[in-house]
């Protein structure tokens, strides 16, 4: 069968199935299980309304339990078994991990990523949001800055491989170095700093996200508070840092933590740029190294990542709920 045709059928069946589920489940509930007629019509309507949310939530809850909750427990159990999954070894995988210098490097690098990427992306996003706010061509600037969001991490990595290319005829960094008389080098092999060159890619992608959210938050600040501050004698910096930023602090925290969670998941950039060589390994890419080869160890790394993400996640959700109130 033609693959386009196949794809179309999949879309129709998928979307149609979803719509059909909600329509027919609702119909059956109202017509046959608790019909809104007869001597108990009023009571039936109330009962149907109590059942309806659960009926509609069921597909999502089912999929989430199957693909998220079950794997959490499954992974944990798997992480307690050996490489082949045949022998229970308790916390052996975890002990091995912490003894492995590659894991320690990945953990330390990941710590740097978590420290730098969310901070820089949020700061730059805030800066761009503020600077483009009153500009006539601000929206064009924002669209350009937002664009990297639409590129996959691997795609972005490919673009940046050109930027970082060691050949001065290809890589702009080396082109500039050579122009000023320095020797060409491979930025991705510069010890320690190569981590930051990789982080730049994710910052480049995430600044757009931070900008969009913070720009909306800045617009939500009552204009009078800014005018009152101007009359009170505040200069533009004071208005920004003492009046505007504190008022959108909740949103800043949400953006910050959301990017932090993302940072703890991204493996593609390291995978595509250095393959984890030159001491650039981070936890997710370290996990990828073992996946399908030593699943016990890979799941143990996955579990470490989950435990690290969990508190950030909780804080993120708490802040986001506060914002929505």
């Amino acid at each position: 069968m033609n693959p386009i045709f196949q794809g179309l059928i999949t879309i129709v069946v998928g979307v149609g199935g979803c719509v059909g589920y909600f329509y027919f489940a609702n119909l059956i509930l109202d017509r046959f299980i608790f019909p809104a007629k007869g001597p108990e019509a009023g009571r039936n309507i109330n009962r149907a309304n109590q059942v309806r949310p659960w009926l509609f939530l069921f597909p999502a809850m089912f999929a989430l339990s199957l693909y998220l909750v079950y794997p959490v427990f499954g992974s944990f159990i798997r992480s307690l078994y050996n490489r082949a999954g045949t022998e229970f070894i308790g916390f052996g995988n975890y002990l091995n991990l912490f003894g492995d210098s590659a894991f320690q490097t990945a953990f330390f690098n990941n710590f740097l990523w978590v420290l730098v990427v969310p901070a820089m992306a949020t700061f730059l996003g805030l800066l761009v949001a503020q600077l483009t706010d009153r500009l006539a061509w601000g929206n064009i600037a924002k669209s350009l800055i937002f664009m990297p969001m639409a590129i996959s991490f691997v795609g972005a990595s490919l673009i940046w491989r050109f930027v970082y290319a060691a050949d001065p005829d290809i890589g702009i960094i080396n082109a500039i170095r050579v122009y000023f008389g320095a020797e060409a080098l491979d930025p991705l092999q510069v010890p320690f700093w190569n981590n930051f060159f990789l982080m730049v890619i994710l910052i480049w992608i995430q600044t757009g996200f931070a900008m969009v959210i913070l720009s909306a938050a800045l617009r939500g600040i009552p204009e009078e508070t800014v005018e009152a501050a101007i009359i009170d004698g505040a200069n533009p910096f004071q208005v920004f840092f003492r009046i505007k930023v504190p008022q959108i602090m909740g949103t800043i925290v949400v953006v910050w933590t959301t990017i932090t969670i993302l940072v703890l998941k991204v493996f593609d950039i390291v995978y595509a740029m250095t393959g984890g060589n030159f001491d650039t390994e981070i936890l997710p890419s370290y996990m990828m190294d073992f996946m399908f080869r030593d699943d016990g160890r890979a799941t143990a790394v996955a579990f470490v990542i989950m435990i690290v993400v969990l508190p950030v996640m909780i804080w993120n959700i708490v802040q986001a709920r506060k914002e929505m109130r």
Binding site: P222, E224, A229, I231, I243, Q247
Partner: peptide, 11 residues
């Protein structure tokens, strides 16, 4: 100036 919306700094 006293504003209609008070314009107090909420934080």
């Amino acid at each position: 100036m006293v504003f209609q919306s008070y314009a107090l700094y909420p934080h």
